[in-house]
Nucleic acid binder design. Structure first.
Lengths: 243, 243
DNA sequence: CAGTGGTCTAGACCACAGG
DNA sequence: CTGTGGTCTAGACCACTGC
């Protein structure tokens, strides 16, 4: 078994970490789709020829990374990017007085363009590589409060201009392009509304907005989406947990 | 053993969770101070009459919660709130072009006052309970870029007005008042600079600032500090990881 | 009922720190 | 060298799910 693992993954690691990486790689390659069940612990243990405890450690790590969901008595499933999960993991903007909710979206335009310097760096693009820029506005509780500019490498998302884009993009990426968002890093700043923001949000130029510059990565930590959101925060706040 | 645990902690939980809670309670009560080493795994196992694996699971949970730090070959230690750790866990405001650094502080005033409605709710104060309000400014790389208002229940921090307050408050709380900050929740908004902000930061009234409203809790999840920071973000950003 | 994941145990061996 | 935590194993029993 150690030999088999070494063949699949040369570098040294504890066994349970190696098992984790093997399973992660398999999942990233489409071995099991979102929502599908993995084989049982004992089947996996037999398959990979390691003990149950080692398999459990690996599955536990993947569950902690939110790649898998485990349910006693049922099985282990590949995480589904349904709205509830997106809301929990990625939607940090919350109404001050109510529960978190999924924002509605209105697409403004979709264009293939050359990337700017920031896109180039954040998405790790090859020289000359083109990107798709998706502009939209979003509303929470009926009030338009976000302008959004989404940048995607055209290589990963061919012909996305022709598609009908839903509200929940991460689920859409997964279903139509096999691109699964695993996590993201956001940089926040306070900025003044531009003329463009002003028109869409109905506030004066210079109004303080919360700008969120997000880079989302897939299961293998490759950056696949950049998203700049500019949000009105009079009745909303961004929630951040430090633990 | 089960009976002994039941005596210390009546409600049902898996054994390793119970062990975790027992150790957490002991630490919160000053059993071991910040930086001190815990007994070895086998000593703890013998003491609590559970298997090594169970002790390891409990210690692993506490390490994941950053209450403990484990070092192979040395031992298990209560987490120390040194600058490096504070920087890593609580200092999310980062220069755009440089590494994270610890901000310098200038104390403006320290006063005992009645709490406002927000303090009352966020800190879970008893009716009529007084608070200490600490106002200061902070600078990163020589430039004053943050105004800060810190609110503390006077019950937990008696005579703090008379103390000389250092830059690293969380370490100070731990050493002088036995209050150990474990984690925090922050609510972020974009706001316009007030006349007060304007004076301290040297920017026009209305300049967009990032307002961070933090409530920090101790090991037992009791809120112990509220802190409202208003930050210039021209050359800084707030880093948030979604995982 | 059978099959799943959840918990607990006991014991072995390894890697590392420090005298 | 001893003692620490880190890893791996094997096997037992429990709790939950769904037929």
């Amino acid at each position: 078994m150690r030999d088999m693992i070494s063949a699949e993954l040369p570098n040294f690691m504890p066994l349970h970490r190696q098992v984790k990486e093997i399973l992660l790689r398999r999942i990233a390659n489409g071995w099991k789709g979102a929502g599908e069940a993995l084989p049982s612990e004992s089947d996996l243990a037999a398959d990979l020829e390691v003990s149950l405890g080692t398999i459990r450690a690996a599955l536990g790590l993947l569950a902690a990374d939110k790649v898998l969901v485990r349910q006693q008595g049922k099985g282990t499933y590949v995480t589904l990017h349904d709205e509830a999960r997106i809301l929990f993991q990625f939607q940090r903007l919350t109404p001050d007085a109510q529960a978190r909710q999924f924002p509605e979206s209105q697409v403004l335009s979709v264009n293939t363009e050359p990337p700017d310097a920031g896109d180039q760096a954040q998405l790790g693009l090859a020289v000359g590589e083109q990107v798709v820029k998706l502009r939209r506005t979003r509303s929470l509780g009926g009030l338009t409060c976000i302008t959004e500019l989404i940048t995607l490498p055209v290589v990963l998302f061919p012909k996305i201009e022709a598609q009908d884009l839903p509200n929940n993009l991460y689920e859409f990426y997964s279903v139509h392009y096999g691109v699964r968002i695993a996590k993201a890093v956001e940089q926040l700043k306070a900025v003044g509304a531009t003329a463009n923001d002003s028109g869409h949000l109905g506030v004066p130029v210079g109004t303080p907005l919360l700008q969120i510059d997000r880079v989302a990565v897939d299961l293998c930590d490759r950056p696949v989406e950049r998203r700049i959101s500019r949000c009105l925060t009079d009745d909303y706040h961004y929630l951040s947990k430090l633990e």
